[in-house]
């Protein structure tokens, strides 16, 4: 190492370290994000359920609510259908 490098090093930024830190935070975030996100099939499941229910009762799209909740060692698939009071 040269004599001047000793002083120069102080000023020079180590961008590789910065890259590593940013990636570690980002990737940790993206990995947890993915495991918590609702599965891809939920919207389609919901649409198909609405279709089946419509064969028997009249419900609008917003009356059917499907959600997946993660508990410690099991998942709950919750299906909520609001039937209107109106008699057809």
């Amino acid at each position: 190492m040269g004599l001047f490098n000793f002083f120069k090093k102080e000023k020079k930024k180590n961008t590789a370290n910065l890259a590593k830190e940013r990636l570690q935070i980002l990737i940790a975030h993206e990995r947890t994000d993915k495991s918590q996100r609702s599965p891809d099939y939920l919207p389609k499941l919901r649409d198909e359920l609405v279709e089946v229910i419509r064969k028997y009762v009249h419900v609008s799209d917003k009356d059917v609510n499907v959600s997946l909740e993660k508990c410690d060692d099991f998942d709950t698939l919750e299906l909520n259908i609001t039937l209107s009071d109106k008699v057809d």
């Binding site: 020079k12 961008t15 590789a16 890259a19 590593k20 990636l23 570690q24």
Partner: peptide, 16 residues
Amino acid sequence: RVEGGDMLGMDDIVEI
């Protein structure tokens, strides 16, 4: 470039 601090080192990539 890794030595110069401009490029991610292989150990860092393996760690990530």
